[in-house]
Design a protein around this nucleic acid. Structure first.
Lengths: 342, 342
DNA sequence: GGAGGCGGTGGGAGCGCTCTCGGGGCCGTG
DNA sequence: CACGGCCCCGAGAGCGCTCCCACCGCCTCC
């Protein structure tokens, strides 16, 4: 095709409407303080010329970018197994779009990428960042704090980086776990096991804590470490059955883990829920709704968490570098969804 | 914290290094035509001041943004069930990162969003776009063509929009399907069914075509329409068994569909692969590797497709608005992965 | 009826960068 | 030894926009 025809500028619109650049600018940015007939004339000129503001020029002077970075640091392949991130992204995207912000996606793998991300954020290309930093030892939060960019975390961050006042959105992992385990107790189960997630992630650690809250001192063999994946769930369930053949309930750290556990239980001839009751966490529908039997689980509204993260960040940006009164953590409630496995 | 301290400018670096702005600019952009001692001095000044170029100012004059939009138009919730997009995103992200480009993610749902996306692309915020437009009747390709932004499509686009020369990356859906069906024939199966994907997507249509290529005229009841989801696969398999109890093989349009089919086959007491052989498509690992029994499937390298899309777009951008000799479609090969179900 | 005020508009500077252009060293050549 | 050419470097303009400030006309109030 032809060379990209240079798009019309403010100047051109001004000329066509017979007003000054300043007036056009005012109209484009809301039209306050401009009299109606002029507004109308400018609007028409904009329309006719197909004028679209040049974001670069605007940013240059306003120092705003109307763009937010989303940083997903997940070396593992979990992103691709678990609909979790996709759902959260959707929530974020909706909210950003609604407020005319763009979403710049930064996927990282490995340490080199961390430096790159930090540099990018420090470079002032975006107004803020939404960060999923799932590991306790992750250097990213520290680096980001150094970059001086307003940030909201997805999930309660670990203690690293000395970020005493990190803003984050999370669900009530501990409370949800307590509900699940209490439900199992209510069913009369006595040998209730827990397959944990990776304990260097606060979500997994908090769910374990919830289990402990209800169970108190318990047979240590009933707690098996795993990693939020179906195959991890299989391994853990296998171990569990070997060590404690009398187990009569399992609280799995997430749905994917529960999926693996169910598979092994079936293989080993245990009936669910008659012999062993199972509860998951997340209520990721395509997973939880379709196991055999249907999985009882703890629901968290993942999309809403994403939306909330974005909303929190944008409101911070709008009132300029969050004052002291800002919330440091927002924790969303969870609900126990009873299906067939418990 | 304090107000964001204004970051150092080229001017500041120049002053510190005792050179002109132009020289600093040259060094920052590769350092060609600047003598070594000066380069060194400028580098040090950059380092000491922590200088990062202001992208907005740069874009204003270069008219480049070093950013690419990724448009995912998927009204259905497929994004969240199928690791497909996540994998492709990862490939795209890697390639863009390697070439210092940013990824601006545009998620759309519904028609209003289309206009928004078109406006954004036309607004010249990005240098190009990678678009996943999966439906034949999707107006998006047309809109995007109108926006005049270099674009590479993920998957062969439908015929809409008159885009006679759309650049796209796809896998060999038809050939892969042929391989799968031919394999089933080779196993001595005679009543080979196909559960299709949504036929308004070229990938699904092409796979059906591949099935037909090998099977020729066949009992129409052996072809059942579905939608790429596990539950759709269940429904279709149920129908199939009702209509053709003698079916002895199923080629499912994707792995998720095969998953649902397997579930129903087990429920109905059919042994796999003894009574009914099953083949999927995609080789999405966490799914295909973990069915019971392990799924035979047609592999496509999804991440590589993403990487290729990005590479294609960037090379187009670098030589300025793709000349006529450019490739209009790149089709990646597929491989049949034999596991236990066929 | 004139001064003060105020809402509305235009002029101009400048955001931080790139890029063209011209000048000044330094080399090679006649 | 002088002159042309080449290679580096610096000065300056200008990308498209916002925002400050000055200006102008009209309304109000004394």
């Amino acid at each position: 095709m032809s060379e990209a025809v240079s798009r019309p500028t403010l100047e051109a619109v001004a000329a066509r409407a017979g007003v000054s650049r300043a007036t056009v600018s005012r109209v484009v940015n809301g039209g306050d303080g401009v009299r109606e007939p002029l507004v109308e004339r400018v609007r028409r000129a904009v329309e006719e010329l197909g004028y679209v503001p040049n974001q670069a020029a605007r940013s240059l002077v306003t120092k705003r970018h109307d763009a937010v970075a989303v940083v997903i640091a997940e070396p593992e392949t979990r992103i691709f197994t678990d609909p979790f991130f996709a759902l959260q992204l959707r929530g974020i995207s909706k909210e950003l779009t609604a407020q005319d912000n763009q979403l710049v996606l930064l996927l990282t793998e490995g340490r080199d990428d961390h430096a790159r991300v930090a540099r990018y954020l420090a470079g002032g290309h975006v107004d803020g960042a939404l960060v999923f930093s799932l590991h306790l030892d992750d250097p990213l939060p520290g680096l980001i704090e150094g970059a001086g960019v307003p940030t909201v975390f997805g999930g309660r961050p670990g203690w690293s980086g000395g970020s005493k006042s990190a803003v984050y959105v999370d669900c009530d992992n501990r409370g949800g776990a307590e509900d699940a385990v209490r439900h199992l107790v209510g069913l009369g189960r006595t040998r209730i096991a827990h397959i944990t997630g990776p304990l260097d992630q606060t979500s997994a650690a908090d769910r374990l804590q919830g289990y402990r809250d209800v169970m108190g001192e318990t047979d240590p063999r009933l707690v098996v470490a795993s990693d939020f994946t179906p195959s991890g769930g299989e391994r853990a369930m296998g171990e569990l059955l070997d060590r404690c053949p009398d187990v009569d309930a399992v609280f799995a750290a997430n749905d994917l883990t529960a999926l693996g556990a169910l598979r092994v239980l079936r293989e080993r001839g245990r009936r669910v829920p008659e012999d062993v009751a199972v509860i998951g966490f997340d209520d990721v529908l395509p997973v939880a709704g379709q196991t055999e039997p249907a999985l009882t689980t703890v629901r968290q509204d993942i999309e809403e968490m994403g939306r909330l993260m974005a909303r929190l960040l944008l409101s911070t940006l709008n009132r300029g570098q969050s004052p002291t009164g800002a919330p440091t953590g927002v924790v969303l409630p969870t609900t126990l969804i009873r299906r067939a496995t418990a």
